[in-house]
Design a protein around this nucleic acid. Structure first.
Lengths: 343, 343
DNA sequence: CTGAAAGCGCTTACAG
DNA sequence: CTGAAAGCGCTTACAG
């Protein structure tokens, strides 16, 4: 249990703990410790495999070299993939990651913030729920938001994607492919990322002089479970048999949508075109494969850490807001005519 | 930055920090602090929203209330789902989770162990790589292994699944469905979980007097990437056109296998039966859907934390080894004859 | 029934 | 060029 402490090294080197601390923190030159002493200390530290006690250091300096990562759901492939990148990038800078999932539940999110705060993380990457801005503003440590932000609050850093553009491109692609009566299936969530996807959808339809009325928009309660979504989507499609295509505003809605469309005996693409937000292994592998607008996961993760590290280092007062473009991945679900299949 | 400390409370209550500490740690009765004083302290602590500084406490007690979770790849759906459960369960006991991915790389794994150790986590949940037993044995804190273990080392706790039984059941199901020439596609990894799956496969074939020769077993280098796996599987299938069915030993092999089979223009189920280890959203949604042997993810996560907490509380000397059964999920990929499809 | 004091392992302002 | 000492916020053995 007991590890090697700075005292042990001091004793063996015949110097004071102060001197050891200076040398080990690279302040030997600055503090003008003699070269011989420095070398002696370094040698002994290496021999003893000295590891500084992070708790003690943290207590003294207030830095824990830990980042708090709050996602909506670590089991969701989008968040799991971002988490992986975040972990990797953080590691390069000597930071470890404490994580938690909110399930988009405000109470859970508050609990997570509280825990991370009193564990003294040095900075936060947060996928916020609704109404979390007050608590976040009180955090006193650098914060970068992801996936969504608070439109009314200007002074948060964030890394998000251009949801409006993504939806616009998705719908425009459907139009180009010949689909006319196009619906969106989204959630009742009033969060900004969902609102922007809806706006992009409506805007694209209007630009193309296509019907964008209320019955083209189906909003499902965002706290349904998978079977619930599937059931509701099925019901909606049954009541709107004249639709040409559907735009699903999240990957889980897209996945449920596939089940719904199938259960109705419709052929994806020829009977009903579809595009989903977010890519997913399933979309690539399905037959027909599913067109989507994909998020740049690698880049999101890299930018999150880059921004956060900068904030932690400089404690800069300027906030930065990064909006990344989405990529349309054209696949078979947006092809109207059955093509002759090769291979 | 500065939070409320025990001193602030002591001052306001007109008592010493010692007394405050006793009361806040529920030792008021034991230390025979008067009820009035206790109540006063509690009231002030609540009013000030006092949160104990975990660093200071950790430094003093040696407990950080943190668990280290080392998985193979947090972006893999199996590990992401287990991580979610682990996080939830840990939270119930007041523990937070620090995580890292090894990519099944020994060096990365050693690095993670080192970091977690000097961060003083109270216990570890580890998906070990090969040759990691020595380092793990030196950890000095409770450890529970997951997914795999070291057959030669008897004194580690672990929670794993019955890989042999899973493979056996999978292959037996293929036989019952009428398939005869059955191959396994696995990796060159010599880790126990892969070995057991192979053994289960061979055993099942032998029990049914079916050919279990070398050409029924295809091992791929485990460090290939997805396209690499797909290519190798395609090559193997081309060279073995007489196969009736294939058992894929991991979910990512199964996924790559689907791509291979498709690219060869074969119909899954009727032309070539298949079962995969591990369930995955894709397997349920694909058409035809894919039969698999599924791991009990919820239970794995729960047992891991339960076992680890017990070890941390009791510091018991006995080790416990839990082997959970797998569940065969029968789907369309193991049906030989095209059925009339309803709805 | 309560408190003064030591100590966990560091860092750093101060002194020489 | 180097060290004694204070202090980060707790807990706990000891004393009364």
């Amino acid at each position: 249990m007991k590890g090697i402490s700075i005292k042990d090294i001091a004793q063996q080197a015949g110097v004071s703990p102060t001197t050891v601390s200076f040398v080990l923190n690279g302040k030997g030159k600055e503090k003008r410790i003699s070269d011989q002493v420095s070398k002696r200390i370094l040698k002994i530290a290496a021999k003893l495999k000295y590891k500084p006690n992070q708790l003690a250091r943290g207590l003294r300096t207030g830095k824990t070299k830990t980042i708090g990562l709050i996602v909506e759901d670590i089991a969701n492939s989008f968040f799991a993939n971002v988490a992986k990148v975040v972990e990797d990038e953080a590691d390069k800078h000597g930071y470890k990651v404490l994580f938690g999932s909110t399930e988009d539940n405000e109470e859970k999110a508050r609990g997570l913030l509280e825990v991370l705060r009193y564990r003294q993380v040095d900075g936060y990457i947060i996928t916020p729920t609704l109404n979390l801005d007050k608590e976040i503003a009180l955090l006193q440590k650098p914060v970068v938001l992801m996936d969504r932000y608070f439109p009314n609050v200007k002074d948060f850093n964030y890394v998000v994607v251009d949801n409006f553009q993504g939806a616009y491109v998705a719908v425009s692609h459907l139009v180009e492919q010949g689909y006319r009566k196009i619906a969106i299936i989204t959630t009742t969530s009033s969060q900004v990322q969902m609102q922007q996807r809806l706006d992009g959808f409506v805007d694209a339809l209007k630009k193309h002089d296509l019907p964008a009325g209320k019955n083209m928009i189906k909003r499902l309660p965002f706290d349904l479970d998978r079977p619930g979504f599937t059931q509701e989507i099925t019901k909606y499609l049954q009541n709107n048999k004249d639709l040409d295509a559907v735009f699903f505003a999240t990957n889980y809605l897209g996945i449920c949508g596939i089940e719904s469309i199938r259960s109705l005996g419709l052929q994806i693409g020829s009977d009903l075109g579809m595009v989903s937000f977010d890519d997913h292994d399933i979309f690539r592998l399905l037959n027909p494969s599913i067109t989507c607008v994909a998020q740049p996961i690698e880049e999101i993760g890299r930018r999150l850490i880059q921004l956060l590290i900068e904030e932690m280092d400089n404690n800069s007062e300027t906030t930065r807001q990064i909006v990344l473009p989405l990529e349309l991945r054209k696949r078979e679900s947006t092809i109207m005519k059955e093509m002759v299949k090769l291979s």
